[in-house]
Design a protein around this nucleic acid. Structure first.
Lengths: 196, 196
DNA sequence: AAGATAAATGAATGGTCATTCACTTACAAT
DNA sequence: ATTGTAAGTGAATGACCATTCATTTATCTT
């Protein structure tokens, strides 16, 4: 039996991310991907059922990796402020380290393709975050709020900041840099909003 | 000279929004649009240079309309908390009133096509918001912060809340409803974070 | 060395795409 | 009523698309 070439598989994944980011969801095609990865179009169909499967698998992998990273060192029983700062640091670190992967996810985030990924991730991580919130409320470190409100105030500003930072890279004139100090300052503002 | 049929133009715009939302950026085609609008493909090219032009024009129109609405009754010299509450109300109102238009914009927001729209909108509205921020800082109603940080904390949670609300409509089990009371409560949390 | 088998391929297929163009239609001006 | 003209059309074109398949290639087992 011929052994399979892991380099090819890696090249397919890597170039898929690059192409999706540069050409957008609508400009992305299997034939272009095959050429970019130095592979026959038919080879891609050995590893993925079809184009949708490729995109969904990739987005699920990357999203999982991102969320998993954000949970490193995290414990739902943590002090609220401490837990928040840890999450902010973890998430920002990961996004800055893998800007292409972040851009890939943002490109397909509003497409119907992302629904499956989102469902899986919710199942995997919502419970842990839910316990964190519940715990913090019990300890009077957090306002009693619907989960969606908590999430919106706690994390939406973080992702917006990262987006500003990433855009700054491509545009030449303006150049917003998200330093660690600024990140933690903003996190503390958010903590202030959420603390009774 | 034959008079032009405004109904056709309106149908093209309306169906373009519907199709983009239902099929996504990648599933959207001129031929499908022509059929949905009851029009020849060639007719679309009378009003739009090409497919990109159609999408860009539409997204610019809708974004402008949305931002314009958000500025109703607004004055950069306003008291900070008052100005924030007005903006939150205006933006939420508009998004809930025209959910398809919001969905359209979110579908193309991360595509290269949106850059032109974004540049125009920044030029038009950033100045007014900048003065509001500057004024509030001067009156000691707002922390001195980079504009991006202010924006992220002040508005990212709002859009996230609206997104949760809109998603609730399609899914049957969970059903997060963004009431006016909850909206203003959350706005006040954000104000607390931003006030010295 | 030969056979078995999964990996990998290039070319082909049928479909859809954006865009164009020769043409018809409807209306305002004459 | 005739005419000029912009609005509107349907069919056609060439490019590109996702996917398949007959075939070849590389490696493991024997």
């Amino acid at each position: 039996m011929r052994t399979r070439d892991e380099n090819k598989i890696a090249a397919i994944k890597e170039k898929a991310i690059e192409l999706m980011v540069s050409d957008g969801l609508d400009g992305f095609s299997i034939q272009k991907l095959a050429k970019a990865a130095g592979v026959s179009p038919a080879t891609i169909y050995i590893y993925y059922k079809d184009k949708e499967d490729l995109i969904v698998q990739l987005s699920t992998d990357l999203t999982y990796k991102m969320l998993d990273h954000s949970m490193q060192g995290f414990d739902p029983e943590m002090d609220f402020a401490e837990g928040m700062r840890l999450q902010w640091k973890n998430r920002a670190n990961h996004c800055m380290k893998y800007p292409l992967e972040l851009a890939f996810i943002e490109h397909i985030r509003y497409s119907p393709l992302y629904e499956k990924t989102k469902a899986e991730m919710t199942a995997r991580f919502k419970d842990e975050m839910g316990r964190f919130v519940h715990c913090a409320i019990k300890n009077k470190q957090l306002h009693k709020l619907p989960f969606e409100v908590y999430w919106s105030v706690a994390f939406a500003p973080l992702y917006q900041l990262i987006k500003f930072h990433s855009q700054g890279r491509s545009h030449k004139n303006e150049h917003f840099v998200l330093s660690n100090k600024l990140l933690m300052q903003t996190c503390d503002l958010v903590i202030k909003a959420l603390t009774p």
